[in-house]
Write a protein that binds this DNA or RNA. Structure first.
Lengths: 209, 209, 209, 209
DNA sequence: TCCTAAGCGAGACGGTACGTCTTGTCTTCCA
DNA sequence: TGGAAGACAAGACGTACCGTCTCGCTTAGGA
């Protein structure tokens, strides 16, 4: 019983070292020039051992990113208030991005992994749909596809993220969150036929967040 | 003088065959499993000849895509009316996507080229900024970054494109264009402080387009 | 400790298979039309593995020939009697050539490796100098360069070898050895000022060898 | 008629430039690293033109060497005295080598053309057989193969040449020629059963040459 | 205390694609 | 018509990674 745990700890430690080494290398040199050899050398791990845990570097990235995304998901889901507002959700996203800005910058830049943008896009869309849109849509009788609206929001949000990373995270997360709300919510409400429900909200960042 | 032209024609033919073969293969098998060998075999071209023209398959893709994008750019710039409306511009985009839907589906799917989404995003943003936003912004005294707004629009537009490709191009391009205008323009106008200039437009596709 | 040995055995086996395959191909098709691919296919070895062991086919040949030459060196050095006579040494050489006549014929023919003749020439010269000439020269006060005499002997010996291979190894090795001694020793003795020391030897192969 | 001559002259000029460029490059960089491209660039000739005249660089070498050898053949055949002595013939050879020592050094060194040594060997053997040996053999009733003796002489002569090139052409050609006679003729005469015919010749270089 | 199972390092190996190099052929034009 | 220019097919080269494999070593429980 305990032996199992020790082994698990050992395995976990190995995987952690691989993951850390990989992220460090991505920040330093970009994703696609990195080889499995590079990762294992950096992590002080035998190359064969890498293949005991992952099929290829893409899988390692995928699993490492999953953990990262789940951090954010938890943030969002544990935050008070449901449904969340565009503002509050996006601020969580911006803060998460800011925390890992070096990594995300490297991932979004040329030579990043092929699937990262679309993957993140879909994942944000699903988060927005679950935490914000579903509640709004239930309130009205629109027949617009919820997934489509979610993609629209996620597309916009991701666009802001990319722009933000390009501009040294210049406006504060809260301001950008407010802007996101300004840009997104009127259109959505229009489409859903909601008579300015959120528009009444005074553009006061604190209150919203 | 004439000899030069003949040679150029020959070169152009070779490049065209490579480009065509590449696109065909991308549609059939997805981008990343394709080797230079595959391309040249399909194009009936010697592998070494490939390297006379391109450094690697990424460069071939890049140049081929550029030509594709420029088709669209021309469509948009030759269309009557300046500044363009969100609706008319997006309809051109949707029509362009529809024309090459098999290709774009393959490019956006997992295993597509690493840079495609971001590249297209930036390129759409630049198109929107030049053809639509610039005129609006000059009319008002807002200090919001034009590039940011362009990224927002492009992000949304790309999101709709991806959703559309996933849903068999279900609503007509005109309808999606109208939806795009509905989703985007209120927020932008809000931010720019424009008092519903476009909102007055009756949601009649024909009139807009 | 033992692991190392196992690995070494594995490596040695791989190299042996490459060497064998190479010699077989040389005999069949001549040296210069053989590609690394051909060798590894014949040896059932991955092409990349070839490059783990050798830089190119020339190096493989070099190392394989070295082993061959060392067989002969051992024959000569373990034979009784020092200094050796021209006759006994050359008979060893002829016997060695006869054993591998197919290989040597292929190597000396057009399309053989560029360096083979000169390499073998120098190597024979060194063998002759060490095993035969040195002793003679020490006995007299000549100031003729030993290396020059060695080259002369080796040149003649190699000439006989080439002639012999061209004539289906017709006279027996012993007879050719006797002829070599007849042709070489009077001149050398003349030059060294040795008063017919060997000339007295009755041309009886047994006694000489 | 005259037009033909002009064209021929032009062709000859092209071939001469190729040949000269090739020899120059061989001296500079060794035979085997030279490409057809290199030769034509040095000769200011189009690469395609090379192939109008020669199939490959080996053929160019062969034809160029043939011309060189024929110079020597003429020297030997026009010299007074027949049959030639070992000494006089070898001195011609040494002088010819000395004239072109840079070229021969490059040809005999590693990376030289594969066939050069054997080719030269056979060619020298044939020269010796025709100019020296044939006459001797006719005088006696020996049944030793003339070709074998010729190979022996040529092998020795070539050996001296190689040694000489390695030693900066140190002893004069005349001395080396005398040494060659000393080394070769006693053995040959022994084998042919000739009772010291040439041995009477006073080792006086001038008289011999 | 030894045993044994599992994680791991080391590295040989087969395989695939790469981008480069050189060859020999061809076509078009120029002098 | 000989030569220059240069696109092209063909194919070997040596390199880089990949993913698999076998072999011992270590180590920490369980016998």
């Amino acid at each position: 019983m305990k032996g199992k745990q020790v082994v698990d700890r050992r395995i976990h430690r190995t995987q952690q070292m691989l993951s850390d080494a990989f992220f460090a290398l991505i920040v330093e040199r970009g994703y696609d020039s990195i080889t499995v050899q590079d990762i294992t050398e950096r992590a002080n791990i035998g190359r064969a051992t890498f293949y005991l845990h992952y099929h290829d570097k893409e899988q390692l990235l995928e699993e490492s990113l999953l953990a990262l995304f789940e951090d954010l998901t938890k943030d969002v889901e544990l935050a008070p208030g449901f449904p969340a507002t565009y503002q509050s959700l996006s601020i969580h996203v911006f803060q998460h991005i800011a925390e890992h800005h070096a990594l995300y910058r490297a991932l979004f830049k040329e030579g990043g992994p092929p699937f990262i943008v679309i993957r993140m896009h879909r994942w944000l869309a699903s988060l927005i749909e679950r935490r914000v849109l579903k509640a709004h849509i239930e309130q009205c009788t629109s027949n617009v596809d919820a997934g489509l609206l979610a993609m629209h929001c996620a597309g916009s949000l991701l666009a802001l993220v990319i722009w933000w990373l390009d501009h040294d995270l210049a406006p504060a997360a809260e301001q950008l969150g407010y802007l996101f709300w300004q840009l997104i919510s009127p259109g959505i409400n229009d489409v859903l036929g909601i008579p300015l429900p959120e528009s009444n909200a005074i553009p006061d960042t604190k209150k919203e967040a």
